[in-house]
Each structure stands twice: as structure tokens, then as C-alpha cells.
């Protein structure tokens, strides 16, 4: 089933929120980094909405996952690409879905391997409040509640839309 989520509207709202927050904090320059792959798509849309010239950074957390021995590597995904210096830079980290918080934890660990950012804000399209870590987003498109057998997925990169899928629950 497809829930009626208007991604474009949410992104416009997120862009505005980012601008407001940056003004409040007195930050004039910052860089946007998307988490592969859905986060990169959202980051690129935010870049357009914010009329920014700088390219967005891309971060691929495959090598930072805490479950790789269970799920294996995903080699086909493209490597991280951060076309700017991380040291002393304000970063807006972007992802499509925030659920347990494990992905953004891995992404922050990876960012710190490139340098020491001045600050990190976290912007996310959909917040599903099933946190397993003490992590809170700075900017949220929408909050969504999911049943235990449901997963949400952003489909893209053209014509971004959100799918909700039923999954088979596995015993762990």
C-alpha cells in the first residue's frame, strides 16, 4: 500500500526549518551530507529548495554498520564522497527515514573519521519513533507510526515517493 505522503511539500518545509534553525544559531555557512542512498536523494532536493550552489556530500555507512557479520557487505553501493573539508564545518546530515537511530550513529562515526565538524544537525524526512539509541533529529518532515510488521521505504531517485510494505517477521 502507498500512504499519501507528499514528499515535495515535506522537503519544502524541511528546507524552511533548516534555514530558520541556522539563522537562530547564527550559522551562515554549512554543508549538506546525505546518507546513502535515500538520504542523498533528499539532500539533493533540499539543496535545490535552498537554492545552494555547493554540491551535497554523500556518505555510505556500509563499513560502519554494527551488523555486517550478519547481513554481509553491499559492495555495489557507491563510496562516500565528501567534496569539502569536515574540520570546523557545520554539517546538516540528511536521511530519508529515522527509526532505531543506528544508521545515523554510524554516519556520525564516519564523519568524525574525516575530521572534527563544528556541529552536526540531523534532518530526516520521516521519523518513525522506534529509537534504540538516545538520538533526536533537528528537523523532521513528518512523524509516522508503523505496525511491527511494516517497513517504510523511499522510492527514487526520480519522482520521490514513500512506500509502506508488510514484511515477514523473523524470529531472532
Amino acid at each position: 500500500m502507498t500512504e499519501q505522503i507528499d514528499v515535495a511539500t515535506l522537503i519544502a518545509k524541511m528546507a524552511q526549518d533548516i534555514e530558520t534553525q541556522m539563522q537562530t544559531r547564527g550559522i551562515s555557512t554549512y554543508e549538506i551530507v546525505g546518507i546513502h542512498s535515500g538520504g542523498v536523494w533528499i539532500a539533493q532536493q533540499l539543496r535545490q529548495a535552498l537554492k545552494r550552489e555547493q554540491a551535497v556530500g554523500e556518505i555510505n555507512i556500509s563499513f560502519y554498520r554494527d551488523d555486517f557479520t550478519r547481513v554481509g557487505l553491499h559492495p555495489q553501493v557507491s563510496p562516500s564522497n565528501l567534496p569539502f573539508v569536515i574540520d570546523n564545518t557545520h554539517i546538516v546530515l540528511v536521511d530519508d527515514v529515522l527509526m532505531s537511530g543506528r544508521t545515523v550513529r554510524a554516519a556520525m562515526n564516519e564523519l568524525f573519521d574525516y575530521g572534527r565538524p563544528a556541529s552536526i544537525q540531523f534532518a530526516v524526512l520521516i521519523d518513525i519513533n522506534q529509537r534504540e539509541l538516545p538520538i533526536a533529529p533537528s528537523v523532521v518532515g513528518t512523524v509516522m507510526a508503523l505496525a511491527t510488521d511494516e517497513r517504510v521505504k523511499l522510492i527514487g531517485p526520480e519522482d520521490l515517493h514513500v512506500n509502506i510494505q508488510k514484511i515477514a517477521i523473523q524470529d531472532n
Binding site: F63, Y64, F68, N109, E110, D113, Y114, G115
Partner: peptide, 8 residues
């Protein structure tokens, strides 16, 4: 990278 290390 600056820090040529990943925690895999």
C-alpha cells in the same frame, strides 16, 4: 581519507 580506517 584523512583517517584511513573503518571499524569493520
Amino acid at each position: 581519507r584523512n583517517i584511513r580506517k573503518v571499524p569493520l
